[in-house]
Design a protein around this nucleic acid. Sequence first.
DNA 1: TTGAAACTGAACCATATGGTTCAGTATAGA
DNA 2: TCTATACTGAACCATATGGTTCAGTTTCAA
Lengths: 125, 125
Amino acid sequence: MVQFQQTHFNAPFAALADTTRRGVLEQLARADASITDLANHFDMTLTGMKKHVGVLELAGLVTTEKVGRVRTCRIGPCRLDEEMEWISRYRAVWDARFDSLDRVVAELKRKDTLPAARRNRGRHE
Amino acid sequence: MVQFQQTHFNAPFAALADTTRRGVLEQLARADASITDLANHFDMTLTGMKKHVGVLELAGLVTTEKVGRVRTCRIGPCRLDEEMEWISRYRAVWDARFDSLDRVVAELKRKDTLPAARRNRGRHE
DNA sequence: TTGAAACTGAACCATATGGTTCAGTATAGA
DNA sequence: TCTATACTGAACCATATGGTTCAGTTTCAA
């Protein structure tokens, strides 16, 4: 019974999980660039860079447009708003948990009584 | 050549790039859980869940402690602060770039008749 | 003391990832 | 027209990922 099946987060996070791709994003945030520009900058073959750009494009983080021979890459429509929101919400839930009275109760219970008490709380989700 | 080699971002982002693992984090944000709890909740074998927890642990997002037979998983020391900061900085650079463009456009077209400079976003350079 | 529960590790599998080389095609420019 | 540039796609490679099964080991509890 999984409550969230937000697979659309997978591609952006996976795109960010690579040093080269984050570098490409930092580069493109400053100025648009061609595949050749980026390949030179990151010391990689054109084909290799094309793949990275493809991953970023699939994630919506980059858009490209080919004019003549050169394909220009620029920052795409995905601004990582939802991803930031996910992280924020995740931490909010976490903080709320430890700020609540529940924490004190759980802490006291863990001191002497059975450890099954905590586990039962997570059962009925 | 490459200015930022921050490979320590790889593991956390990669850890987030999976629906099951994000679900585990959401779960653990609410309550600690054993491997069995998580495996049941996400309809997966113990071994499979153990691997996911291992990935999360490697990324610092989860810590585990084994007491008796049961390994209890809880939210780890990595609060994704730096990751949030990276995204914020990335967007700040991007925004700064277009804000300065806007300033140039505004400078050139100082005698009103201004057709929404921001709509031309990405068409230049 | 004995059996079940909870985990662990090895091995396996299919597919994805991050690169490469090589052989093209299309276009810009002399 | 000719050539170099810029990209593209197929094929290949090594490794990683996301799962599984199976065969243990430890620990809890009756």
